[in-house]
Write a protein that binds this DNA or RNA. Structure first.
Lengths: 142, 142
DNA sequence: GCGGACCTTAGAACAGTTCTAATCTTGTAG
DNA sequence: CTACAAGATTAGAACTGTTCTAAGGTCCGC
């Protein structure tokens, strides 16, 4: 995490309390947080921080390649600090939990590329996590 | 298309001019239309139709399994009438064009499933279509 | 301590979608 | 044909997530 702050400083970023706190939110457990999650956690450290700053900072971190935007998992954006290793996402359709997983990337046969230049492949496994599976069984009599 | 209308009637759907026109929008060329696209095309046939009805009808068609929602290719929802054959999507990141393609579905090793029950796999290839590639070249001197 | 670049902020604006409540249409029974 | 009830349509309000705006605050070299 200190390393991230250093990298940001090296890029000419002014390190402010707000930016530091947002960056630190991603230091702990590897989670895929929404903007509101980040806002909430940042406010626990720095109650004055505004939502606008959280949005600004997240967008800048994405622009610098320090965070990945996870767009296709429900209706709000999520942020993934794992920019080092290529990975896919496993999403619980009930609770929205996301885990990183690894899978062989699919590819398209040349004949079916329609002249496209392929830039990336985005894979999301949708399923139900153990907690939501047992919750579903528990209430299945309703 | 007549078949679709019949299926809808069989399900107890009241066939109104509005619903018929929305269903017919998907009869022609296989496209992945946004709500606004559908609204525009429907109004060409039935100028009085309201956007609310287009939303209602599309949501009902999705609920009946007659249309697929393509959620995260850009920032608006798109609708795909190809519910018969499993397929993936190839998206142009510049113009938003979507094509159906076929690829071997990736899968997750058992050890990495974390107890999830996998329901579906969502694959999107992002790239640049031939038109946008040549447009990019043409203006690359700017 | 000054100036200017940069940052933060609250709230307005915006886009896409859903909701609301009033009106209209349809199909059926009398 | 008429009345009725269920269902469909409508305009516009409301809602949600995100971006914009403009005003003020902070930092740092001079």
């Amino acid at each position: 995490m200190a390393k991230l702050i250093d990298r940001l400083r090296d890029r000419g970023w002014r390190i402010t309390p707000q930016r530091r706190v947002v960056a630190e939110v991603f230091a702990g457990e590897h989670l895929h947080l929404s903007v509101d999650d980040v806002y909430e956690r940042a406010r626990a450290e720095l109650p004055e921080i505004s939502l606008a700053t959280v949005y600004n900072t997240l967008n800048e971190l994405v622009g610098m390649g320090e965070l990945l935007e996870v767009n296709r998992c429900g209706d709000r954006r999520r942020y993934d600090p794992n920019v080092e290793q290529r990975h896919e996402h496993l999403l619980c359709v009930d609770c929205g939990r996301i885990l990183d997983v690894h899978a062989r990337r699919p590819h398209i046969a040349d004949e079916e590329r329609y002249g496209f230049e392929i830039l990336e492949v985005d894979v999301v496994f949708r399923g139900r996590c153990p907690d939501c599976r047992s919750a579903a069984h528990a209430s299945s009599g309703e």
